[in-house]
Amino acid sequence: MTAPDDRESILSRVRGALAPLHERAPLPDYSTEIAVMRSLVAGRDLVELLGERMKRVNGLALTEVAALVAHLRAGGWLHGYCDPVLWPRLAPHFGAELKVETEFDRTRVDDYAFGITRAAGAIAESGTLILHDATTSRRLAALTPWVHVAVVERAQIFSDLPQAVAALGRDPNVIWCTGPSKTADVEGILIEGVHGPGQQIALVLG
């Protein structure tokens, strides 16, 4: 499908451009520790820190299903989606007032006020939730509803970015979500909920 000549001509121009260099800049040896906010992270309980850091980016971390249900009720988000794997665990706490589907129908994206999916982990330092293709039942369910709830196991919280990078693993798609979707394009004024959720919630269990 590619015109094969462009590959060769680009690489040949690259080689030609670099040929006159007497030496090439070496890759510096360094520790990513220098990019970690260590004083913030050191010695902290990771659940507590995650909550603090999420709050800083207008996210919310909860540790009880009941609190989540109360939050959804209070916000009037009464119809949503839940990952079928999670639902048996959460269902007992959800009253009849809340309508929950375990099949996500992309032709009705506007029907779902909330979406509950599994997270593959979280990063305490940055208040980030980590989603993988393998564990997040639907990319769209974590993105299109106004409220996204990611269920994180306590043991899956990394302390800092370098740790989370080291654990990227083999999933072809990993996404870090740090607070609600936002923009400041109009006059620099922060508005949340642009294309993705206006509320980003972590439900830390386990």
Binding site: H132, I175, T178, G179
Partner: peptide
């Protein structure tokens, strides 16, 4: 950190 940081190594799983 930017809100969405996506690491993509191929087509979806």
């Amino acid at each position: 950190l930017t809100v969405y940081t996506e690491f993509i190594s191929g087509p979806k799983s």
